[in-house]
Design a protein around this nucleic acid. Structure first.
Lengths: 132, 132
DNA sequence: TTGCAATTGCGATGCACTTGCAATAAGAAT
DNA sequence: ATTCTTATTGCAAGTGCATCGCAATTGCAA
């Protein structure tokens, strides 16, 4: 019988999750590493990556593979849309309804079994637009 | 006066574009490199990358920065949606209408100037589903 | 034909992420 | 509490994709 290995709630994993949940920004792994380091100075970046992978796997957090740039992470695992600033790379949530009907439309339009969808908007953030 | 440098249609650039237009798949840079190499054995991968960058810039082709995987390229620069197989990584077009109203909704829901959007579906392709 | 900047090929480099491995430490069993 | 198993960690080295510096080449306008 295939048994998935028991997960342990290590200090590292706990703090990675706490710090990610604490912010509404979408930090990259190394930004989060900096944040976590303030509470756990010795933690290694590889550990942060490994835990983010596991937490994503468990559905606790969300991995954002945003267009061609560095991966970012989101403490909110519910599907929601994002917008990325094409000038500074910043990523924000877009507080609009998720359009689940897109998936039905896609299912009709291709031969795949559709599982999920993501929407990414690209634009200019207020900071960049208003010149800073 | 700022003058963007004059572009030259080199043999390399021409063939990169032709090969990419020739297929409906969404090759990665190195897949395209292989294809181009059959006609131009000496071409370097860096040249392929540079040309894809320039052609994207000119709106001739589209760069697909698909979720966390290797970058892919699309000979069709008009906005359309894609679906990625979560098992094999293959990417296909989804022949459904582009929902431009998403951008209006996003504009209302955040403070950005919205420029564009992309939708990516994730699913299981027929080949993987039907067991191969 | 000439001049020259855009482009190429090549190797080196960068960057983000992953992995192998020995040491450490959760947390279940005793 | 103590023991035991094995998941997890820190570290360093490794990967893979993409980019860069530079000298040589080549479009192409004059």
């Amino acid at each position: 019988m295939i048994r998935r290995s028991a997960r342990r709630m290590t200090r590292q994993r706990k703090i990675v999750l706490e710090e990610l949940r604490k912010v509404t920004s979408h930090p990259t792994a190394d930004q989060l590493h900096q944040m976590v380091r303030r509470r756990l100075p010795g933690i290694n970046i590889a550990t942060v990556y490994r835990n983010l992978e596991i937490l994503t796997d468990e559905g606790e957090v969300m991995k954002l593979d945003v267009a061609g740039t560095q991966r970012r992470f989101d403490g909110n695992a519910l599907n929601h849309y994002h917008i990325r600033c094409s000038r500074c790379g910043r990523v924000d949530d877009v507080h609009m309804d998720v359009v689940d009907s897109l998936e039905e439309a896609a299912a009709k339009a291709c031969a795949y079994t559709v599982l999920s969808h993501t929407v990414e908007f690209v634009g200019i953030c207020p900071g960049c637009r208003d010149g800073n």
